[in-house]
Amino acid sequence: MRLLRYLFLLCALAAAIAGGYWWSVRPPEVNVAHPYKGRAAEVVYATAVVEPVRWAKVTSIVRERIVSLCGCEGMKVTKGDGLAELDSGDARATLAELEARQDLALSERDRALQLLERRVVSQQIYDRAQSELIRINAIIAAQKERLLDYSIVAPMDGVVLRQDGSVGEVAEPGEILFWIGQPKPLQLVAEVNEEDIPKVTEGQKALILADAFPDEELSATVGRITPKGDPVLKNYRVYLDLPDDTPLRIGMTAEINIVTRENDDSLLLPPAAFNGTIVQTVNAENRVASIDVKTGIRGTRAIEVLDGLAEESRVVFPYRADLTEGQKVVPEAGDER
């Protein structure tokens, strides 16, 4: 009885050893994909903001409290229409003081002229009085011009796209109080990295991905490229024209892919199948062979294969660094896209 138990244990141990050995020498399973025909596109990625083609930012150039606002956000305005008034009390008090000094200087000049005609004072006294009057007149003219800065007006015909600030707040110089522009046409303003800008030219098509319209196919056309880039951010500004029927709105952000080159009916493989330009193929004997292929357009979803593979080739997908040249494998059909 004990002998039978020992024999049973030995058989079980032998089976386990045999199974482990078989598993250790069993060829590994790999997913394989076939190159497929499709359109290869080289794109330049960038983020962009929707802006009107013609618009202006309206700011204050003096630091003063806001006393009135037009409340005309979303309304049409004409160039010169009043948008806001700033507190000009101190400026007008200064003007009144200057005008009083002007009256005095005028009297002094007239008196000096009368005395000069009677030869009581010299020409020099009269000239000094005349110069003082001229100086005060110039100061008053400048002060009247400065008072215009307390009235903020529309710099162009258009629509008040946005109004900021409230009555009682202090407007700071350079702080934007109004955005005024033409609702149509619209454009995308993108920042493109300097290493990509040589690929971008006017007239190229751009595909748009906007969070507000995830299921819509939106596009734009490269209109112009700023001649000078930003040496700090290392990018160039690119303006893209939007069609009149675009659903995008002013101020929206979007991701764009500018199509810089494309080929139809190309042989493609997903990027995960590559290690640089090396791919692993599985031959008729199910053995691995590494091939250095010639590639063309390298996109984010597919890489164009120019030479080295055929449509019937079986390619390990994704690339397996643990496989060796000539190693036997068990291929299984994988997702090739």
Rank of each mutant, 00 (worst) to 15 (best):
Y239L: 12
W55Q: 14
A142I: 01
Q114M: 13
E99R: 15
I180W: 13
R39D: 14
A112D: 10
V316F: 08
P231L: 02
A15D: 04
T324R: 15
I297A: 03
R101F: 00
L3T: 08
D157T: 13
Q143P: 11
S166A: 12
L98E: 11
L233W: 03
R337V: 01
I197E: 02
I140Y: 07
N275V: 00
R54H: 15
A190R: 07
S290T: 15
V50R: 08
L9S: 04
R237Q: 15
A273K: 01
R314W: 12
V44F: 08
V282P: 13
R287C: 03
W179D: 10
D265R: 15
Q204R: 11
D87L: 12
Y21D: 00
A321Y: 13
I208S: 15
L242M: 01
G276E: 06
I134G: 02
T277S: 13
S131A: 15
E64R: 02
A310M: 04
T300Y: 05
V43H: 04
W55G: 10
Q327R: 14
G20R: 10
A40T: 15
S219H: 10
R224M: 11
V315K: 02
I256N: 09
M156W: 11
R39F: 08
D230P: 11
K328H: 10
A84W: 03
K328Y: 06
Q114H: 10
L268G: 12
R301P: 00
A273M: 02
P243K: 05
Q130E: 09
